[in-house]
Amino acid sequence: MCAVRGLTKTYPAARGRRGVPATPEIRATDDVRLDIRRGEIFGLLGPNGAGKSTLVRQLTGLMRPDRGSVEILGHDVVRHPERASRILAYLGQESTALDELTVSLAAETTGRLRGLDVRRARAERDAVLEELGLTPIAGRPLKKLSGGQRRLACFAAALVGERPLLVLDEPTTGMDPVARRAVWSAVDRRRAERGTTVLLVTHNVIEAETVLDRVAVLDRGRVIACDTPTGLKEQVAGEVRVELVWREAAPLHVPEVAALRDRVVESGRRWTLRLAPEEARTVVATVTGGAAFAALDDFTLATPSLEDVYLALGGAARQGLVKA
């Protein structure tokens, strides 16, 4: 339902002024190709500054790409950006337009601006606020709510006035588990009842693994992988993540430990290693017995997560990652 081809966007370099350093030009979207299918929860995963928001802003008609095409439900969004607003609902990272309204008025106004008449807008507002558990705080201004509550209220506004595609830029930041669950079940209900498609921006790996059907991993504006979470994890299958936490410092006087040193990702007292299963077993045997054990605080063995995939794909030249 959404096809993106060769999408490219470069932020121009800014000349430095007094007190403001110059910034080089940034290619925030770099020849991106994506196909999102109907009824899918499609994720964009990537670290801060990877270009996720820039990409979705081009899909929502908010930003004109330098090159490339975006087609949603057969409509050319690059040529007719105004059509995007009649196909999709967008939840951006900012909420300033709604901040001073009450939850209820924010949802109702958004519905009316999505073309609903007053009666429909109020009915849908009430239903959505109830569904998300926002009714008790419906009369409070968004500005006076907690970060998570505010985010949920903005999500509610995005749902009033049904759209076949929801574009959500980090919808659950700051939310507690109850609110998150409310979001995902609202999304799932729309998907089951109406075949709603969701494009979700996240850098939460756990969320990505549990809710996404497919995920594109973005790094410095490029799609470096695109598959189901399981499919991506298979790329690093056959590897095990070993985490060692030392009491104070690693016992480098133990030769087996010293030998591992150039294969670990070190962060403070924590060592992370990605190893083949037999190797992992040997390492665990080494550190849990003998001289190294005295220096060991804790260790875990785990199968790889999407985070490992991300790190493996990130090309950040970390050793001992993917063999393929």
């Binding site: 105004e82 995007a84 607003s85 300033t96 337009a97 999505r114």
Partner: peptide, 17 residues
């Protein structure tokens, strides 16, 4: 001025208004 700088215009710009 503030709405534009903070990205608040996006809200209206993604509604068919």
């Amino acid at each position: 001025g503030q709405l534009r700088a903070s990205g608040g215009l996006d809200h209206y710009a993604t509604l068919p208004v």
